[in-house]
Design a protein around this nucleic acid. Structure first.
Lengths: 197, 197
DNA sequence: ATTTAACTAACTAACGCTTGTTAGTTTAAC
DNA sequence: GTTAAACTAACAAGCGTTAGTTAGTTAAAT
């Protein structure tokens, strides 16, 4: 019930739940599953979280809050804008490549289309990065559509990495996962060409 | 059990199930939900499909088979390649904009990462379009990476439309859904710039 | 210093409900 | 008269959740 950050059991539950919610989804995952992965029994979860929904929401906050920080930060430097964009894409790309949980939960929110979750994602996770990105885009090219470009960039970053398990079955798709450095570099090039390189 | 295409009840079940699976997902949807939406009782579903999993697979085939046809078709014309690409993007874009079910089920397969479903999507749905697209890309610019471009295009088309409910909560996101014509035009421009316009 | 009280967080047992699915029956069509 | 496809009834399993209990820790009172 406390949900306090300093409680180590709550933290362990959140970390475990994040993994499980990400890979199995809300409905396919039972409280007993989560509890057993934490080496406790299901009713004990209710000492830390009001109900399943509250645990899910807390999990989303837990995963997303720490993530959005690194991105805004690199857009606040005083590098030249083109370089700033490159750095942003590199950092965001690495996050997408490494953080399966983040990517998966992001997609799940997009799929479920729950209004509360969408608002949370937009306001608490994406808003700052979006604003900073908009500024960088218009700085590079005042005639561009920063909103379109931001969505495009998000789509490219998320999709390329999410599609990796699919890609290997596509024609001309090599058996191995495409190197994230290669993808990141090409996405950087793509955005710059789009901005009138 | 028959799953034959000419059976009208089976067809009605598939159409209904497609809507429901798309919007609620596999686990959140019960056989009783599906049945009730078809104005029958749950056990009657088993006269047409072996079990829930089989109904789901049949639904995927039902939704995707008809979709992949239109796309390959427009890539087989003998228009100049740049025009062919434009037409492909326009048709695919309209499908993404209109066909909520297709988009949603596509994303769900990507999320669930079930190997069987990924293979089905790759081989039965995407393979032909991918090959044709590759050809068009190298025809326009022999030095490009057609595989990267194909994935990028898929990502842009899917994501822009899937992100529309999110977009309206983002900073500078207008209250209304972005016009699909506008999105399609910008994606066309983007691809052409990428190919060295 | 010892006892008492209160709180935290784990447990077991269980409730009411929903799930996918089967069995057995009925009804209508060829 | 066989068959296809609907039905009712029901099963076993699993679900989220609550109640009640217990053990361990902390704080105040004696």
């Amino acid at each position: 019930m406390t949900e306090s950050k300093e409680n180590s059991t709550s933290q362990r539950i959140l970390k475990t739940a994040a993994e499980l919610f990400a890979s199995k989804g809300y409905d396919a995952l039972s409280m007993r599953d989560i509890a057993s992965a934490c080496d406790i029994k299901a009713p004990s979860l209710y000492n830390h979280f009001k109900d399943k929904q509250a645990l899910y929401q807390a999990t989303l906050k837990f995963v997303f809050k720490q993530q959005s920080q690194a991105l805004v930060c690199c857009l606040e430097s005083d590098l030249p804008p083109k370089q700033k964009l490159n750095e942003f894409i590199e950092i965001a790309g690495k996050q997408m490549a490494d953080n399966f949980i983040f990517r998966q939960l992001f997609f799940r929110i997009l799929l479920a289309q729950d209004e509360e979750d969408l608002k949370f994602l937009a306001n608490q996770v994406l808003a700052d990065s979006c604003n900073a990105l908009h500024a960088v885009f218009v700085e590079i090219n005042p005639d561009c559509d920063p909103h379109f470009l931001t969505t495009s960039l998000m789509g490219l970053l998320l999709f390329h990495f999410q599609a990796n398990p699919l890609r290997i079955y596509l024609p001309a798709g090599s058996e191995q996962t495409q190197a994230s450095e290669y993808l990141i570099e090409h996405i950087q090039l793509m955005l710059h060409k789009q901005l009138g390189d």
